[in-house]
């Protein structure tokens, strides 16, 4: 997709204003990205195939190009991998269900309050990410208002709790990544020409048909961008699982973190990181191709 664009650029509109200037503008930033993004990833690939030094201290590894590290790492963390993708998928779906009507209301029904509402949608996320997560621990905890209410309504049993559960982890993830969903959705809904909706009305489509055949397809770029921006950080997150979960809800991020810091097992942590990145990149590529919004990249 992106490579195709470059071919087109090369063949066609090569205006080349001031030959060297763009490269000078790019150089410092690209050098930074190369040093602190590309190099570490290459280094990580190297680390992932190392094995412990025989008779060495903990944390000492030597390069032996052992590809089986990947298989071992995957087998050791299979449930966490599955959980990461399931939780991230659920959180993305929930975030879409919550954000779409909200973005729709702001884009089409808010009148002169549009700017204020837009600020209000983002405002909660200026309180610290970790404080928000801790706040959910309080809300869903014994002393919060949710548990007593649900108990009084007999929706949950008198002994049931909500914290330290998969439900709490998904709730926290949904909330924490919500603006990444709402803002792209709003941006693409706002760009829709209201006359296209009127035209649909004039052609005797009812509200539901107009939404299904006109509004939703036109908002697709926002849906794709929003779901990606929510899914990616959610799949790699371990803060929600650490604060709101229990030992049976750990995600791949928790494993990488503890392999790195507690067990000092760099090769396994590196192999897991690499597999996570590869899995996400593959999913993202398929998703972007499928939804036909190539211009995103």
């Amino acid at each position: 997709m992106a490579f195709l664009q470059s071919a087109v650029t090369r063949a066609g509109t090569f205006t080349g204003r001031k030959g060297r200037l763009p490269y000078l503008l790019l150089l410092p930033g690209m050098l930074w990205l190369f040093t602190f993004f590309i190099l570490p990833i290459i280094n990580l690939a190297g680390t992932s195939t190392q094995t412990p030094v025989l008779g060495g201290d903990t944390g000492q590894y030597v390069q032996t190009f052992r590809l089986a590290n990947y298989i071992d790492a995957f087998n050791a963390a299979r449930p966490q991998f599955a959980r990461s993708f399931i939780y991230a998928f659920l959180a993305t779906l929930l975030a879409l269900a919550i954000s779409y009507p909200l973005a729709y209301a702001i884009a089409f029904r808010s009148g002169r309050f549009k700017n204020i509402l837009l600020v209000l949608v983002v405002a909660p996320f200026f309180t610290s990410f970790l404080l928000r997560t801790v706040a959910w621990k309080q809300i869903l905890g014994e002393e919060g208002f949710v548990v007593p209410t649900l108990r009084a309504l007999h929706i949950i049993g008198p002994q049931a709790t909500l914290t330290a559960s998969a439900l709490a982890v998904v709730t926290g993830m949904t909330y924490n990544f919500l603006p990444f969903m709402t803002l792209p959705l709003y941006a693409s809904l706002e760009r829709i020409d209201p006359r296209t909706l009127e035209a649909s009305n004039d052609l005797y489509a009812n509200g539901i048909t107009t939404f299904r055949k006109v509004t939703f397809p036109l908002s697709m770029p926002g849906v794709v961008a929003g779901t990606l921006l929510t899914f990616i950080p959610a799949a790699g997150d371990y803060v929600n699982a650490a604060i709101l979960g229990n030992p049976n809800t750990t995600m791949i991020g928790n494993v990488i973190d503890s392999r790195f810091f507690r067990i000092v097992d760099y090769p396994t942590a590196a192999a897991l990181s690499f597999m996570l990145m590869a899995a996400i990149l593959i999913l993202v590529t398929i998703y972007i191709r499928r939804s036909g919004t190539d211009e995103l990249v």
Binding site: F37, P40, L44, P233, I256, A270, F274, I280, V284
Partner: peptide
């Protein structure tokens, strides 16, 4: 498009 845990761990490594 890269999860933070990958960015963080690769840099530290």
């Amino acid at each position: 498009a890269t999860p933070e845990v990958v960015l963080g761990s690769s840099l530290l490594a």
